[in-house]
């Protein structure tokens, strides 16, 4: 019974691993472009889990071909949902890329720690209050899990 691993169990394992690798990347990387790539992986994992919910054993694609003979079909709904979710993801990724270009232009850096401390500094200056610490020492400001 120990080796009783089904194909859908394996697929789920892969999808969960993919999304968690993405989440891990989001937590530990400091380069904003890497964070974007990690986000893409996380979304891909979530999409895979969604589309797997329509999986049937020996199921065929839900298309009524001329020679259709009553075989079991996979659930069409998750396939439609995941089509929507993928396109939504593409839109968000493109927007994030444009924002990264803009940020690079403005702050000359892709390091999230540097960007964040410069942002804090800028907000403080605009409001005319004392900036929180020096922005040359980014290491003190970072906390774990702030992007959760």
């Amino acid at each position: 019974m120990l080796i009783n691993i089904s194909i859908e169990g394996l697929l789920y394992f892969g999808a969960i691993s993919l999304s968690l690798i993405g989440l891990f990347g989001l937590l530990v990387s400091n380069n904003v472009f890497r964070m974007l790539l990690a986000l893409v992986m996380f979304e891909a994992g979530a999409n895979l889990i969604l589309v797997l919910s329509g999986f049937r054993e020996n199921g065929i694609a839900p298309i009524f071909l001329a020679d259709y003979s009553g075989a079991i079909m996979n659930d069409p709904v998750p396939q439609a949902l995941v089509l929507t979710a993928i396109v939504i993801g593409v839109g968000i990724q493109a927007l994030a890329l444009a924002l990264i270009l803009r940020v690079k232009k403005h702050y000359k850096s892709l390091d999230m720690r540097v960007i964040r401390s410069k942002l804090e500094h800028e907000i403080a200056t605009q409001a005319n209050v004392e900036p929180p610490g020096s922005h040359h020492a980014p290491k003190q400001i970072v906390r774990a899990g702030e992007h959760q």
Partner: peptide, 30 residues
């Protein structure tokens, strides 16, 4: 004949409209 298409455009047509709007929003913002 393609049931997924029926779901995308008929049963859940509003999702598709929303998704087109999201693409439009992203393209506008970019």
């Amino acid at each position: 004949a393609n049931v997924v298409t029926s779901v995308v455009l008929a049963y859940r047509g509003l999702d598709t409209l929303g998704e087109l709007s999201i693409l439009f929003a992203a393209a506008s913002a970019v």
